[in-house]
Design a binder for these strands. Sequence first.
DNA 1: AGAGCCATTGTTTTT
DNA 2: CAATGGCTCT
Length: 734
Amino acid sequence: MITEDTTNTTSTMSNEWLKDELNDAQQAAVTAPLGHQLVLAGAGSGKTRVLVCRIAWVLLNHSLSPFNILAVTFTNKAAGEMSGRIASMVNEAVRGMWVGTFHHLAHRLLRMHWNEAKLAENFQIIDSDDQLRLVKRIVKSMNLSDNKWAPKKIQWFINGQKDLGLRAKDCVRDNFYQDKMIDIYYEYETLCEQNDLVDFSELLLRSFELLRNNPDLLQHYQQRFKHVFVDEFQDTNSIQYEWIKLFCGPDTFITVVGDDDQSIYGWRGAKVENIQRFTREFSNVTVYRLEQNYRSTAIILKAANALIANNDNRLGKELWTQSNPGEPIPLYAAYNEQDEANYIVNCVKDWVHQGGARKEISVLYRSNAQSRALEEALLHHNIPYRIYGGVRFFERAEIKDSLAYLRLVTNRNDDTAFERVINTPTRGIGARSLEIVREHARTHQLSLWQASCELIHQADSILKGKARNGIAQFCEIINAIEDKTINWNLADQVDFTLKHSGLYASYEQATSELVRSKLENLKELVNAASQFVPIHTDLEMTPLALFLSHITLDAGDTGADPYEDAVQLMTLHSAKGLEFPFVIVCGLEEGLFPHKMSSHDPDRLEEERRLCYVGFTRAMQKLCITYATSRRAYNSEFIGRRSRFINEIPKNLLAEVRFKTKVSKPVFFQTTANFAEDEKPLYQIGQRVYHQNFGEGTVLDYEDHRTQPRVLIRFTQHGDKWLLATISKLSILK
DNA sequence: AGAGCCATTGTTTTT
DNA sequence: CAATGGCTCT
């Protein structure tokens, strides 16, 4: 049933390399006798190296083949890095080894055993965007107001239940509110079944049930996997824990690696307690601690340690380093978010002036919305940058439209895809005709596709004229794409779909720049298809089906282009597992970081602090932190205090960039305009001004404790200058 | 049927 | 303030 390479290809290496490359603690973990292991690995302590070496060690010294290894990570990046490093260490080692994210491996299981999992062979994976649409449709069809029953809340609820391993039938009905939620959950389950759709949480839950309900299968995998490795164990949720536990048979050893101080996914169900639970539920677990940090300078590490020491809920661990102290951490108090962004731009310029590369710099922020001010500033100064997260490529509307066609080609029962593109581009099918199709589908228990086919072929169809032609045309398009391109290569297939669906044409007509970019995106999709190399070739899937799965599972996980020298912008969450020579953590204000949604609850506050800790510990040589006194949120601007996290860093590690201002009496602008004495504008920090010789600049500071009041202005072209306030002629820019 | 306008509403983090 | 959704007008 399962055919894979079982040859043992690993015996060419000696063990000497371990002695040179690893410190004592690392060596102990790597060379330990077989058994259950818990490795508590602090940030930058060589966690991945230990994991990789341990796998290599087990292969070399315990006559196991790669076939016996299961290694689970959270991100594709981590999985890729792991298999790459193992491969370079042990010849050809990864063949037959299962290395991947929870979601990938679960997906793989379901593809291999779709029948036992009670799925259609051509089931599709939906992302959270599709999921939300589905929930919206259900809420509407149940005649519930989406004010009271916010689709996002319901989506959250459903995923939460699935993460706990609960089906709709297992949920406890405590009150009216939950009752309704569970009803919707039921509807959602049915809809997914009918449409052969599987969401992210479903991948895990379904594959868990698959193994639990099929003892033969379970036994097969338990015997196959002699050694299981789990990375970032602090981020596992309930179902993932159970999932892992299932794989561990009586003869399976398991190694988990984690750091309780870096647990930042509690909000989506991750349970740090899984670490302690692991030591309880698996017998004779040996605990290893990696506490020497190799990444950061001593000052950065001290700051991070001091910060995290404020958390009560810790397993306890103090990182140390032999590195040199490095520079104190610059702390910049910006006037507002623009000033903050400009300061960051200057940091980038300085770094580059000193011979650094832009791609060595990462700017980290709490929420995606913060990227805007940064983008504007970087754009304005022509500094190449790259944003991770935010609106991802495959989430763009035009791409989703294209994918909907491809999904229908793969599976006609995909109603979500059907609804999305039945009238995109417009072909004369309105809400009324669509409702007829929906009604027919509902009464006859058909998919929308099947209903359409029946309706257009009935002699006395309720569907008339234009709409009927439109639907018939649509069905022909889908069928034609499949018939014609069935043996074509993937890129041509996608290209033909875009042509034949009319999507290309609909964007080609328009002239606006916005629409042009959409056309570019479509071409980029074809390009992505041509670049696509299927990995799991052993699965019996068409290249198209593999491509579609790949897109939903790997969307947005595009790593940095090594040739592109761009500043890296990302949230603190997506920075986990990465490191950069120069890290800037911005927006350290109460209410933003820690976020106000988390400030009330002590547990969630600790998670915010861990997030900050993660941010600080990404830095290798230089760390810089900033906050803004005033920040434009949605309607108004709000004045924030500096984050408590800043105050938790010992003063002597910080270098405040600002000068102390001593203002005893108002200081006025000398402007080019003629103002009456009493209406002369006051200097304001953050104010944009223009100087005849120096051009545009921003007021950074002012002081009047000397005989002459003076003002510090940061000019875009000429850098920082102190000017005499009453003499320099400045005009105010709005 | 479709475009465009107005109003409402939501603002954390994501595999 | 932006983005989405619903409504109206053509």
